[in-house]
């Protein structure tokens, strides 16, 4: 190598011709492979931040841990144990009910608000801005504020006292606590549904609606046959986002109820948190995480298949 370099340096004409052709080849090669090269940093990040932890989690889920120490390989035992674990099964049911109710209410309320805001309203800009505030607050701040609202003798009790004639155990009554959590979730995330649905409503081409009006279609007909099909992708997208996000709910539960009273608000993320960080049973926690991942994937794929949407 050093010999070649010396030869080139001794013959400037050859050197510059050879250097020129090398640069050209390099430029051609780079041009041909530029797309792949640009993807490499993303792939490295994706692998180190997503795939590697996932592979590690799968590996950990196949070991038994006691007091944080790896005891031995147990294969799929941790997964099998989940099936027989009544606490885990209960947390799945609690999470399913939480997700179903909160996402349904968010979607219906959000869609209605979006339809209302899509009309010509006074102060529409101001209303839109105010509606977005809950969404931009930190979840922990929201949970702490709602904890004050739910406190015995707090603002909500003051409002409801004339109706129910006493304090409501918002987060202390096992038959009410989950609905209190859902109320907080709906309050925070309905604005996102409003935002996305409003964007969808505003993107429906006017000429289609005008043509339908000229053909004598009713408002309901226009909404059903033109607006909704046009928004199908966005609706599926927002439902997937909200379902996945709701399944992962942790901060509100941790601050407001810690999964109680009893097991009434014990969602899967609380159960995972306890297994991992309180009991340091990494194997059980990893098997819960992988199971949850599979459930979320299944839900997302089902949504997309049913709606026949291509993103």
């Amino acid at each position: 190598m050093s010999e070649g370099t010396n030869t080139v340096s001794e013959n400037p004409i050859h050197a510059s011709a050879s250097e020129g052709s090398r640069k050209e080849r390099l430029a051609l090669w780079a041009d041909e492979h530029l797309a792949k090269l640009l993807v490499i940093p993303t792939l490295v990040l994706l692998f180190s931040m997503t795939f590697y932890p996932m592979i590690r989690a799968i590996e950990m889920s196949m070991y038994q841990y006691t007091a944080g120490q790896r005891i031995g390989f147990v294969g799929l035992d941790n997964y099998v144990n989940l099936f027989y674990d009544s606490t885990w099964r209960n947390s799945l049911m609690v999470t399913a009910w939480y997700v179903f109710l909160s996402v349904t209410v968010q979607f219906v309320v959000g869609f209605v608000i979006a339809v209302l805001l899509n009309r010509k309203l006074k102060f529409r800009g101001l209303i839109q801005t105010l509606i977005l505030i809950p969404m931009i607050l930190a979840p922990t701040v929201i949970a702490l504020v709602w904890r004050l609202l739910y406190a015995p003798g707090g603002l909500l009790d003051f409002i409801f006292y004339p109706i129910v004639g006493g304090n409501v155990g918002w987060i202390s009554d096992s038959s009410i606590a989950l609905y209190s959590l859902i109320l907080t979730e709906v309050w925070q995330w309905t604005p996102l549904v409003v935002l996305v649905m409003l964007a969808g409503l505003q993107s429906v081409p006017d000429h289609l609606k005008e043509a339908a009006v000229m053909d004598g279609a009713s408002r309901l007909r226009i909404f059903w046959d033109i607006t909704l099909p046009h928004m199908k992708s966005l609706i599926v997208l927002i439902l997937i986002i909200r379902v996945i996000d709701s399944i992962r709910v942790f901060d509100k539960v941790y601050i407001l109820t810690r999964g109680g009273p009893g097991e009434s608000t014990n969602v899967v993320s609380m159960e995972m948190y306890r297994a991992a960080f309180e009991f340091t049973n990494w194997g059980a926690a990893a098997s819960m995480a992988i199971s949850l991942l599979l459930i979320v994937l299944l839900i997302a794929i089902t949504f997309v298949k049913i709606a026949e949407v291509k993103f």
């Binding site: 006691t66 007091a67 009554d173 096992s174 109680g260 009273p261 009893g262 097991e263 009434s264 306890r274 309180e278 009991f279 340091t280 049973n281």
Partner: peptide, 22 residues
């Protein structure tokens, strides 16, 4: 070494009695 898990489990059971669920 298992105290955290014992305490949590026992705490849930006591809480269930408190809420009349057990």
């Amino acid at each position: 070494t298992e105290w955290n898990e014992i305490e949590e489990d026992h705490g849930i059971i006591l809480n269930n009695v408190l809420t009349d669920d057990m």
